[in-house]
Amino acid sequence: SPSVSTAELDHLVQTISKSHLETCQYLTEELQQTSWQSFLQAEVESYQSKPRELMWQLCAVKITEAVQYVVEFAKRIDGFMELCQNDQIVLLKAGSLEVILVRMCRLFDSQNNSVYFDGKFAGPDVFRALGCDDLITSVFDFANSMCSLRLSEDELAVFSAFLLLSADRSWLQEKLKVEKLQQKTQLALQHVLQKNRREDGALNKLRSKVSALRSLCTRHTETLSAFRAVHPDVVRTHFPPLYKELFG
C-alpha cells in the first residue's frame, strides 16, 4: 500500500469532508429547523392511498435528486476526475445508491424510526403503497444500524468516498488506478477513526456495512425490475431518465 504521511492524510480527510458538506443536500441545521416533524396520520394515509406507480415515481424522483448530489461529491474527490470516463461512470453507477443509503443516517430519527422525506419525517408505513415492505424495512434497519455507530460528518464523508472508490466493481478498465485511490482513502478512514479515538473494531464494523449495502442495492434493482415488468409504460414515460440509466 502507498506510504502516506499523517499530514497528507489529515489534508485528505479535510478535503473529502469539505466536499461532503458542500454536496450533502441537507445541512444538519436545516433539518433541525424542521423540528423533526413527522407526517400527521392523515398525511400518512394520503401517501398510503397513492396508486403504486405514483408512489414509485415520487421515490424515483427523490432518489434521482440525491444521486445528483453524490455525483458532485464524487467529482470533488481528489483523483476521481483523473480516472478514465468509463471508470467514473462504472463507479458512480455502482456506488451512488450506496452513498445515498449511508447519507440517509444524517436524515434519520432513530427514536421515531423515521427518515426525512418530502418535507417531513416518514416512518416505513408511509412507503406502503410501493408494495415492497421487506425492502423498506431493510432500508430502515440499515439506517438504524448506521445511526448507532454515531459517525461524525468527517467519518461519514471518508466512508462515502471509500465506498465510491471500490476497485472490485465489474467493468473497470483501470482497476489498479482505482485500487491505489481506494487504498489511500482507506488509510484516511483509519486515520480519522483513530483521530476520533474510536475503538479498534470501528473499521471492521464499517467494512461489515459494505456487504449490507451491496445487498440492499441488488434488492433495489430486482424490485425495480419486478415493478417495471408490471408497469413498463410508467417507467418509460414518467421515471427520471437518470434513474433509469443507473438502475434500469
Partner: peptide, 16 residues
C-alpha cells in the same frame, strides 16, 4: 458512455 448519456453529461459539466 453511450448507455449513460446523462451521467456522462453531469460528469462533463463544470462544478455546480
Amino acid at each position: 458512455k453511450d448507455k449513460h448519456k446523462i451521467l456522462h453529461q453531469l460528469l462533463q459539466n463544470s462544478t455546480s
